[in-house]
Design a protein around this nucleic acid. Structure first.
Ligand SMILES: NC(=O)c1ccc[n+]([C@@H]2O[C@H](COP(=O)([O-])OP(=O)(O)OC[C@H]3O[C@@H](n4cnc5c(N)ncnc54)[C@H](O)[C@@H]3O)[C@@H](O)[C@H]2O)c1
Ligand SMILES: NC(=O)c1ccc[n+]([C@@H]2O[C@H](COP(=O)([O-])OP(=O)(O)OC[C@H]3O[C@@H](n4cnc5c(N)ncnc54)[C@H](O)[C@@H]3O)[C@@H](O)[C@H]2O)c1
Lengths: 216, 216
DNA sequence: ATAATTTTGTTAAAAAAATAACATTGTTAA
DNA sequence: TTAACAATGTTATTTTTTTAACAAAATTAT
């Protein structure tokens, strides 16, 4: 099966895990490790070794028996599968606390995904740069996105502006949106949308903490 | 089936969705809506109406035929299922950009989950408050957590400190950890751990954007 | 008054994901 | 040398999650 065909049949959960494996592998690489066993990856990610091997099987990677997987090779292969060949430019809308946290976190982390622009409505922020990322006015969005070939937008504006910002991003031609706003938005189906709310995560933790306590 | 028994058998995904439904319902309530149909909830959450009805069936909620669900009642019932009866205190470790974003976001949002303390290593931050949340030194962690009966810790420190902070939280007696650090940590199995990395979300968006482009 | 419609609630089926089982094969050790 | 071991890779099974199908009932329309 060609790489192209592989990609189309990867389970959604496998995609997520591949990204996580790579994150862990990069840490390993830094620490000088050249090989890693499936059960080591599994332990880091809190999953089973079988699942790791199964995921790697799906992307057609073959480790060395009894030596495990070559860290560098695996990082490269995961990149071939999940990264776009030429890299993708990303914009952040809303250069507040969360936007700033994201920009700091990303800068220099992933070469194939570059945050190349920020947008805000606050005149004090427009025209400045933040960790090297220039901040533009929201009115310039459409032109800047087209000019810089930005294909993904991250939304970190106050919830009340979520819907209007999403619409603006879509009109500007973005093909993926990552919405960190607490307000769900709608996009046409040729735009991939991912929404995340920290309250859901925290409430989930709280639920299982409660459950566990009641059990005892 | 008693509420207690219901909870034990709820699928993990249902727990997440219940939290999301409530978020959406609270928004509806604000806008003056008293009733809502399953397909309306579904549309907001980008899922199917059947799934909504099935989830509500699992928690034993009965809507009114042809009128839909009573927004207020449903909010209350979801609270009875997923919230702890007496509320849970939460701490944030690492009062940087992300920590600040979280505190702002949470403050006044959920009455049953209160962020009552922050911890940091930076002397300039210790002793101050941020959106009403006092910042303590990391050395005081164990005593403060015990004194304030904190049961969940959110980690927003730099990755290099993740493991040590997680250990500290566990030693202090926390029963749930939400790790926003890029470094996975390990906890004993009586502590519920949730880890989230924005890079995974962004890489997932990028993957599907790429896929979609190649298809065309 | 009756039929059509719309929405819920539930059971059944399908799909997706995780786990288990196990064959295979280098490596180590007796 | 051979047996035990420890790792991978793959198929089979189980579990979980989602979707579909449809009965029941209130409302609306005819
Ligand atoms: N999803 C999560 O887990 C999570 C966590 C924390 C915060 N949040 C949300 O993220 C958002 C940002 O949080 P924050 O703490 O960074 O808030 P913030 O107030 O610090 O930042 C918001 C920024 O958006 C800018 N802005 C306002 N309206 C705008 C518009 N129409 N167009 C462009 N920019 C605009 C503001 O000038 C500001 O710089 C909020 O919606 C908050 O609720 C989400
Ligand atoms: N998971 C995600 O999606 C995501 C997104 C953005 C950032 N991050 C991560 O979140 C973390 C925080 O990001 P940020 O932008 O807020 O960074 P930041 O530097 O602004 O904040 C870190 C804070 O932690 C404090 N600190 C350092 N060492 C500490 C210790 N040992 N104990 C207690 N406090 C300590 C610092 O004084 C600072 O206030 C980083 O690990 C970053 O990589 C994660």
């Amino acid at each position: 099966m060609k790489p192209n065909q592989i990609m189309k049949h990867l389970p959604h959960k496998t995609i997520e895990r591949l990204s996580q494996y790579r994150r862990a592998l990069l840490i390993c690489l830094d620490s000088g490790k050249t090989h890693i066993y499936s059960h080591e990856i599994a332990r880091i990610q809190h999953i089973t070794a079988v699942q790791v091997r199964r995921d790697l099987m799906l992307i057609g990677y073959t480790g060395t028996l009894r030596k495990g997987y070559n860290v560098k090779e695996l990082i490269d292969l995961i990149g071939q599968i999940i990264d776009a060949t030429e890299g993708i430019n990303v914009a952040i809308v809303g250069m507040g606390n969360l936007g700033r946290a994201l920009i700091n976190y990303f800068t220099g982390k992933r070469s194939h995904l570059s945050i190349v622009a920020g947008f805000d409505i606050n005149p004090d922020k427009i025209g400045n740069t933040m960790s090297g990322v220039p901040c533009f006015g929201i009115d310039e969005m459409e032109s800047v996105i087209k000019r810089l070939d930005i294909r993904i937008g991250i939304m970190t504006v106050p919830g009340d502006f979520a819907v209007e910002v999403a619409d603006k991003l879509v009109r500007a031609g973005v093909k993926g949106i990552l919405n960190y706003t607490p307000k769900p938005v709608n996009v046409p189906k040729d735009v991939y949308l991912e929404e995340y709310d920290m309250i859901t995560s925290l409430e989930k933790v709280a639920f299982y903490v409660k459950m566990h306590e009641e059990e005892a």
